[in-house]
Amino acid sequence: MTAILQTNHLTKTLGGKTLVADVNLHVKKGTIYGFLGPNGAGKTMVMKMITNLWKPTSGSIELFGEVLTPTSYEVLKRMGSIIEFPTFYEHLSGKDNLQLHCEYMGYYSSGSVEQALALLDLQDAGTKPVKSYSLGMKQRLGLARAVLCKPELLILDEPTNGLDPVGMKQIRDLMRTLCEEYGITLMVSSHILSEIESIADTIGVIHHGKLVKEISMKEIADSSLAYLELSVSDVKRASYVLADKLSLPNFKVMDEHSIRIYDNRYSAKELAKTLAMNEVDFDGISKKAETLEDYFLKLTMEGEKSC
C-alpha cells in the first residue's frame, strides 16, 4: 500500500535542545494512523513540521510523493489539519469563518459549508458568533473546517480535547466514516490510548522525541499474549494446585487475590473443575489479552531504560 506521508530522519533542534530526533514514520493511503505519546513527547512538533508550520533542522518530509518545501502550496491544499487548539475570528459566526476558509483555500463548492456544519452537528450554532461557543463546539468547528475542502489527508492533533464522552464518540465515528466512506487518510495524535485503539489501523509511538515503534494494530493483536485471569481467595493454595495438580509452569501471581495463567493447555472450564475439586474458592476466571495500553507502557518503559 502506498505511503501518502512519510518522514525521513526528521529532526528538530531549538535553542541547542533536540526536540525531535531521527523520526521515520509512514502513513499509508486510506488508513488511520494513531500517533501516540505522553505529553511533551514530540507529537505536536512532528505535526507542525508536516504542516509546514515549523521547518525541520534536518531530514525531510514527503507528501503525496513530493518532498515538502517552504513553497509546497499546492501539496498543502490537499491537506486538512487541526494543530493544538483551533483559532477563529471570534466576532464572526461559525458559518462565516468556514466561508472565509473556502476563500483562503480557493475552494468553491455549493453547499460545502452547510455540509461540514451538518457533519459536526453544528447547524443550529452556525449562525452564532464563535465567541459564544463552548470549548467543545470550537473543537468541532475546527474539525468542520479541517474537512471542509475535502482533503486527501487529515492531520489531527488531539481532536477530542474539550469534548464530553458523547462528543468523543461522535468524533471517533466521524473519523472512521471519513476514512472508510470518503477515502480520507488520517493521522491522529492522542495520549488517550482507548481512543486510538478503537479506530487506528497503525500506530506510531513517540517518546522523548524518538519514534520508538511503528506497528499495525493487527500485528499487536496477533502478538498479544492472551491469558486467563483467575480471582481467588487464597493465592497460595491456588498456586499449589496449578503447579502440583496441573503441572502448569507458566503463571504469575499478580496480588493476593489474582493470578494470570499464560498456558493455554487447559480451558477455563477445566481449570474451574480442578480448583473446585481441590477446595480452592474462586470468584471467576476470565480470558484477557494485552491491550494497547499494556503494549504502550511496555514500549515507553523500555525506552526509559535505554535513555
Rank of each mutant, 00 (worst) to 15 (best):
V280T: 05
S223I: 02
Y266C: 14
G30W: 13
K77M: 08
I192Y: 13
A200M: 08
S134F: 00
L98I: 10
G30Y: 12
V241F: 04
L5K: 08
N250F: 02
S110F: 12
S58Q: 13
T291E: 12
S267D: 06
E84K: 12
L68A: 07
F85G: 09
T13E: 15
G167L: 00
T11L: 07
R265K: 15
D96G: 03
E90Q: 00
S109P: 01
L154K: 10
S231P: 03
V205A: 05
A226I: 05
A268F: 04
V46L: 11
S258Y: 01
L53D: 01
L53G: 04
V241Q: 03
I4Y: 11
L174T: 05
L242C: 05
V212W: 02
S306W: 06
E195P: 13
L143N: 09
S223Q: 15
I285N: 07
T18I: 12
S58R: 12
K12C: 10
L92I: 06
P70R: 01
S93H: 04
L122C: 08
G16T: 03
C149M: 11
N161M: 01
M137P: 00
I285A: 07
A116I: 02
I199F: 09
P56Q: 05
L68D: 02
E84R: 10
Y227P: 04
